[in-house]
Design a protein around this nucleic acid. Structure first.
Lengths: 199, 199
DNA sequence: ACTTACATACCGACTGGTCGGTATGTAATA
DNA sequence: TATTACATACCGACCAGTCGGTATGTAAGT
């Protein structure tokens, strides 16, 4: 018997194991037995904590969204120019990525699932919507205070987001001659300089 | 019995059906029977043309890479500035996408597969490598002729490619308030203006 | 021309392993 | 002693791949 642990702790442990396995094998190829083996637990125990494979995956997405919510924080740097805040978020994201690439590598898995599951599509849309909203607000604010030109803020927000998504491609095919930081910095500069008010 | 057709034609018909099914359901959830049903063929016939599911998928990738090779064409516009050629390629890609989104929506499926299959990873790397090379060459050429600043051409090539990959996100989550063309134009302009020589 | 021989395209019932999920029981905890 | 956390043995639907067979060309031999 494995050491007994309260459900709240064990659930997280399972979710982390599931993340590893889902990333390594993909949702469909991932076996419930693989996940269980990863932490030396039994299948019965897993099904005690989660109703089904799909349920586990949904819980994983929720857990995953929580990991990223600190991005939506703010407060501390309200006074600074939008440019700096956006740069900060980008650098922070890159740092997160370096620390735990798996959190990002599940994304294609989520996309694939979203493509055939309405509920999951809505969850993902909701998350991306809130990320886009955050960037949009920052850009609007930048325009208002004369920092940025009068651009289509929704579009720019999308550019920023898809640029950050480029990190996923980066992780999958590791072009060994470039650094991730360089990539993120360059992309952000291109966007932010591009929309800056010329002097 | 279905009408007999030469192998070369039938293979392509199967590949196109497979593309539809793989995109709709994902590789693992796609059933060989689904593919066969799509064109009213028998399972035996399918296995007459392809050795296995994986073999079919590999053939699909090869077919898919062929579809994109016209991008690597050129010739006709050798004289024009790099900026225009790159813009042309981007617009051309967007048009391709509009005409057949499935060709792009398989990409996440290929990525996912590449993550757990060495051979497929190498195929994908090879394709992306050649796309990157093409953009790199164009940028180098632009630098040489005083069109662009002395930037890291590899990095910029990556920016261009990941920007175009953003279309996939676009297709999956269809933000109905934006147009694809606008997105592509904006991104390309940000990059190309960003590296242009200032006057 | 027509038969023999071989090749290619196709059919669909069947199988055997796989894997998500369940049933039932036991040890710890509150 | 009731509940929670876990283990083990098992089930059965599902599906990639097989195989014996049919149907349609097609090319050489006579």
């Amino acid at each position: 018997m494995t050491e007994r642990r309260p459900s709240s702790e064990r659930r997280i442990e399972i979710l982390e194991a599931a993340l590893t396995i889902f990333v390594k094998k993909g949702y469909s190829e991932a076996r419930m037995d693989d996940i269980v083996q990863e932490i030396g637990l039994s299948k019965g125990a897993l099904y005690h904590h989660f109703q089904s494979k799909r349920d586990l995956f949904i819980a994983l997405i929720e857990h995953w969204m929580d990991q990223f919510s600190p991005i939506e924080r703010g407060g501390l740097m309200r006074a600074k120019p939008s440019r700096e805040i956006i740069l900060h978020i980008a650098k922070f994201t890159a740092k997160l990525f370096k620390r735990n690439p798996n959190w990002f590598l599940v994304e294609p898995e989520i996309w694939a699932f979203a493509n055939r599951d309405k509920e999951i599509k809505e969850m993902a849309s909701h998350l991306y919507g809130s990320v886009l909203n955050e960037f949009e607000a920052l850009i609007k604010r930048g325009i208002k205070f004369g920092e940025f030109r009068d651009v289509n803020e929704g579009m720019i927000a999308m550019s920023i987001m898809t640029s950050l998504h480029g990190m996923i491609w980066f992780a999958l095919f590791k072009p060994n001659d470039f650094s991730l930081e360089e990539y993120v910095d360059l992309n952000m500069e291109l966007i932010l300089d591009g929309i800056a008010v010329q002097d």
